[in-house]
Amino acid sequence: MILILFKKELRETWRTWKLPIMLIVFVIFGIMNPLMAKLTPEILKMSNLAGKLSLPAPTSLDSWTQFYKNISQIGIYLFMMIFAGIVNHEVSQHTLVNLVTKGLSRNAVIWSKWLILLGQWLSLNSLSFLVTWGYTAFYFPDNHSPHPVLAFLPLLILGCFIAGVIVFASTITRSNYQSLLIEIFMMIVLYLINLFKQTVHYNPLSLMSKNLDFLQRQNSVADYWPAMLITVGLGLLLTFLASRIFAHQRL
């Protein structure tokens, strides 16, 4: 049943232009990262600081810095924004009435939505990653970034959490504005927790903020396994809670 609904969700996100728009946006990010890395020194040179500063030549590290900055500061919020209405839009439009009165389980609705979000998070980020990786390897063939794939994997794991946040927020709210506010609120909570340095190995946020460490030092990833477990666990928990709440909602 979840598979049937997953196909329906896939068709929905494609035909309502959500997925195509996100695909273009994430490829744009993929290209912008190496471009910014390349152009930043040029731009600085043209400014009046020229000659006063000695500028190091850009490296692959600059390109990857841009990548994680773009995803964690913009990409994630665009993703949340586009999919903020994934549950409450269907509730407000009553589109589930026909399906539920045919015996469709409400749990399947929620879990299929979590899966489609996770699937899109994985594919969009992977696409952006591949584009950046390709250009970076071409323009900055240096050895400053030895573990690009390893550094990227935690970002994929974060998708479990992001998908859970969106499904949960969209279930407990009535509009996509409210939903987006809850999502942002949850991110703020993570940032506040992050102020306590000792939580760094447990905070899901680390999976999108510590990637440059992972990129350069393979061993550092291992320290973050609690954060990865918590990320997956929280994602599943939020979705489970959403399904319990959704079970008693008026459609």
Binding site: W17, I21, L78, M81, G85, Y177
Partner: peptide, 8 residues
């Protein structure tokens, strides 16, 4: 701009 349009 386009993302905000499609979202809201």
């Amino acid at each position: 701009g386009p993302v905000i349009y499609f979202a809201f």
